[in-house]
């Protein structure tokens, strides 16, 4: 077996190139034909021809844990109603909108290391530079991140989201099975691993924090709690909007999450 595998390794690179080329051709061929088929008749005015590719075809979803996921989904729904909703209401009543916006911006700015590491690992130096620029501008001109001053700099606007999950995707790792995590909600295996790593990149979770003079454990706990509280109204708004218009809330959220992540990693 040994010599054979050596030989395989020897020609494998060329074979890979040839294989990719053939695959590309095969993949491109139907697309070319489809484009021709769509163009050849006069501008179609009668909608929804059967011969054109179905742009909304349901993609196969990996959800082997669906029964468990549905149970956790239900549990989370109850938890949001019992705990998170009152918290969000109270927070919104107690703070004026500019304060809410400032806190959202502050915690978003604090997550800069996640985006930087994500872009660097994905091999996207331009975005890493943009993110660094955003962080510097918002931390200085934006008063420690309370104001998104970077939005007035065109080159720093609309930088696509990044984190370990998007870096894994850039390496070619697929999402894996769909998961509903307790409390946190919809996820997939790739992004769950990414998320677990991202947590360590948030400065408030760094151990260096503990070496500050006069550190108390409740500093960190307080900041983390504030982070959850300030993010709760936006989170619930998205969640509620989705659920209100859903016919099967679980399927709607699963599809919505997977579509969202697929487009985020493609950006």
């Amino acid at each position: 077996m040994k010599p054979l595998s050596r030989r395989t390794a020897f020609w494998s690179r060329d074979a890979l190139v040839a294989f990719s080329f053939v695959t590309l051709l095969l993949a491109a061929a139907p697309a070319t034909f489809a484009a021709d088929a769509a163009k050849s008749p006069a501008p179609s005015t009668s909608s929804g021809q059967a011969d054109e590719p179905d742009e909304f075809a349901v993609k196969p979803v990996s959800d082997p844990l669906e029964p468990l996921n549905r149970a956790v989904f239900k549990f989370n729904d109850g938890l949001y109603s019992l705990v998170l909703r009152p918290v969000a209401h109270g927070y919104q009543r107690a703070t004026p909108p500019p304060v809410q916006r400032g806190l959202t911006n502050f915690f978003d700015n604090l997550r800069f290391p996640i985006r930087l590491v994500g872009d660097v690992l994905a091999g996207r130096p331009k975005r890493a530079v943009q993110e660094t620029g955003k962080f510097l501008v918002n931390t200085t001109a934006g008063f420690a991140g309370l104001v998104r001053a970077s939005d007035s700099v065109p080159a720093l606007k609309d930088v696509p989201p990044a984190g370990l999950g998007t870096a894994f995707a850039a390496w070619g790792i697929g999402p894996g099975p769909f998961l509903v995590l307790p409390v946190i909600g919809p996820n997939d295996v790739r992004d769950t691993v990414g998320f677990a790593g991202d947590v360590y990149l948030i400065p408030t979770n760094w151990t260096a924090f503990e070496r500050i003079d006069g550190y108390h454990w409740w500093w960190r706990t307080g900041i983390q709690t504030l982070d959850v509280v300030q993010s709760s109204p936006d989170f619930l708004k998205t969640y509620d909007d989705f659920l209100k218009s859903a016919l099967d809330p679980y399927l709607a959220v699963r599809n919505g999450y997977l579509q969202y992540r697929e487009s985020a990693v493609k950006k």
Binding site: F56, V58, A246, L247, L251, A252, R254, G256, Q259
Partner: peptide
């Protein structure tokens, strides 16, 4: 539309 398709 794709989201509703997944439910329909």
């Amino acid at each position: 539309v794709a989201n509703y398709r997944a439910q329909f």
